[in-house]
Design a protein around this nucleic acid. Sequence first.
DNA 1: TCATAAATTTAGCCGCACCTAAATATTCAT
DNA 2: ATGAATATTTAGGTGCGGCTAAATTTATGA
Lengths: 224, 224
Amino acid sequence: MVKKLSHNIQDYLKQIYEITNTGGKASTSQLAEALGISAASVTNMIQKLSMTQPPLVTYTKHQGVELTNAGQQVALKIIRRHRLIEHYLVKELGYSWDEVHEEAEILEHAMSPRLEKRIDAALGYPEFDPHGDPIPDQNLRMPEVTKTSLSDLKAGEAGRVIRVPHNDPRVLRYLGKSGLRPGASIKLLARTPYDQTMRVLIRDTDEEVIIGPVLGAQITLAVE
Amino acid sequence: MVKKLSHNIQDYLKQIYEITNTGGKASTSQLAEALGISAASVTNMIQKLSMTQPPLVTYTKHQGVELTNAGQQVALKIIRRHRLIEHYLVKELGYSWDEVHEEAEILEHAMSPRLEKRIDAALGYPEFDPHGDPIPDQNLRMPEVTKTSLSDLKAGEAGRVIRVPHNDPRVLRYLGKSGLRPGASIKLLARTPYDQTMRVLIRDTDEEVIIGPVLGAQITLAVE
DNA sequence: TCATAAATTTAGCCGCACCTAAATATTCAT
DNA sequence: ATGAATATTTAGGTGCGGCTAAATTTATGA
């Protein structure tokens, strides 16, 4: 099977997963950007990852990378740990949802299979984390997720929030303040034709919030 | 103050602390043994640690190392995190006391100040971990500990166990099976004159256990 | 189309933390 | 007190994962 991999290789695989998950292959520069290192370093590492036994990525010069099955298993394991930790920190240690991402970013690499199991059990084998992100199960199968986003809604339509973006604390604090979080019932009040900015009503709190198109595309929901 | 230090430097400092805590300076070979690396590598690293700003250790060729105040602060912080994690895993996640050491060995390096505080609070600011080892407080002050060991007892004398060694799962399972753990009331039944092997009665479970002199010296207790 | 811009790769370098082998210093036992 | 054994340090080397600068390939737009 796959040997024990270093911290940073896990980060490469995780990033490749995230990038390829929404669009075809991951490019060198996308990875360099996401990992905060130079493009040359990425090329270098990608070449190594494509030559491990078994290979973790498939790579053709100038054409970007994809994960092999082996690489995907590794990525999913890390993502599973990341989301379990986030969930645990919020539920058991009183963290707010904007604090947990960076913490999980570190702890995901320090988590043994045993700890993973215990935390999973302590949480009751959850399928989603506090941001609504799906948590792969023990066999690394990803729960099904909704694809409808806030940006797909027409003015006047309503829905229940499923998932919000997870990596930017400022965004999370902004959304959290008005009560826009997974489970919340919302209604799209209006959308400006020019820049697609949206005015959204959160029914539970009766608050209104302004959401741009980029953020709106990252909020998924079930239409009601 | 002291910059963010790498994983392995933290391990060096922690080991130096452990070794110098029971005896004068730490020798190159002691450290090499404890860290599982070559003596040459230790010399090399020690030299670096003695030249940081501020220096983390004091070092004179061929005479071993000691921690500076700065180095001691770092070591105590890691030890604090280690013991808090052990305590947390046992109390909140159902670990047995022989499982937690290796887990904590990894997590101690992945723990943010915030997580340290939350776990400390969740546990009610404990002074001792499940093995009876003292946990430095937020200001890194170490609680006072008893110095009397099982080996100091005379045959027939009794006491209450304070602390047992923490790093060997097999020893912990052996002790745990008979109920010899912090808080247990015990009585030294007999000691063989030749090799100082001890027969110990654990009153709570009415079990008897055989303890050699090396292990006996590492079990501390309050004489009754 | 084709010149230029942008992305990617190659080449060569660096620091880190380890290693082994050889040199040197210290300790111990006769 | 001194030679042998042991401990420590020095010298020189390795792999890893970054880096910059230069070369090359691919994409773009006039």
